[in-house]
């Protein structure tokens, strides 16, 4: 699913200093949504946590290899989850707090077929650390340090029938 040249460990090793400096990296065009077939998903709704569809997936070696090459760290897969957000969907900090892996790394692949606009936001207290734009094919890698939380911004009615598909892989540091 990771597109060339980002499936090449030597290319990712060259990006590593930038990841280490920013503790995050956004790579537009680094995955191919056309190669992904979404499995059946379950509806999730708890008002204070979020509204979305969710599928738990088995770990993928290609995503771990990508994350290890980018971070230069040995990683253990914690979970792989597919989230689908449509009009009226969102997820809040509290939802993230119940499943976040820290310290570790979170890799998100935007497997949407179209742009709907609502980003994912990583924040520490009132400070926005990283806004991950909603762009099909974009891959984001973010170090999950203590105190860093994520939310997926609400999709308003203006998105129409568009769906945002985010494949998220959480890894904890193995050493």
């Amino acid at each position: 699913m990771i597109r060339a040249p980002f499936d090449d460990a030597s290319v990712l090793a060259k990006l590593r200093p930038a990841f280490e400096a920013q503790r995050s990296m956004i790579l537009p065009g680094a995955c191919d949504p056309d190669l992904f077939r979404a499995p059946p998903m379950n509806r999730f709704f708890l008002a204070h946590r979020g509204r979305y569809h969710l599928a738990e997936l088995p770990p993928r070696d290609d995503l771990r290899a990508f994350a290890e090459a980018l971070t230069g760290r040995r990683l253990l897969p914690a979970w792989l989850r597919l989230f689908r957000f449509r009009r009226g969907c969102y997820s809040l900090f509290y939802d993230d707090s119940l499943s976040r892996i820290e310290p570790g790394v979170e890799v998100t692949l935007d497997l949407s077929r179209e742009m709907a606009g609502a980003p994912a936001v990583y924040q520490s207290g009132p400070t926005q650390l990283l806004v991950v734009p909603q762009v099909p094919g974009l891959v984001a890698a973010v170090e999950r340090a203590p105190g860093v939380f994520r939310y997926d911004r609400y999709l308003p009615a203006s998105v129409g029938r568009a769906a945002v598909l985010r494949l998220r892989a959480a890894f904890r540091y193995a050493d």
Binding site: A47, H48, Y90, L92, Y154
Partner: peptide, 10 residues
């Protein structure tokens, strides 16, 4: 305005 909201909270 259109598109604005305040999500569930306590």
């Amino acid at each position: 305005l259109a598109g604005d909201y305040l999500l569930p909270h306590s």
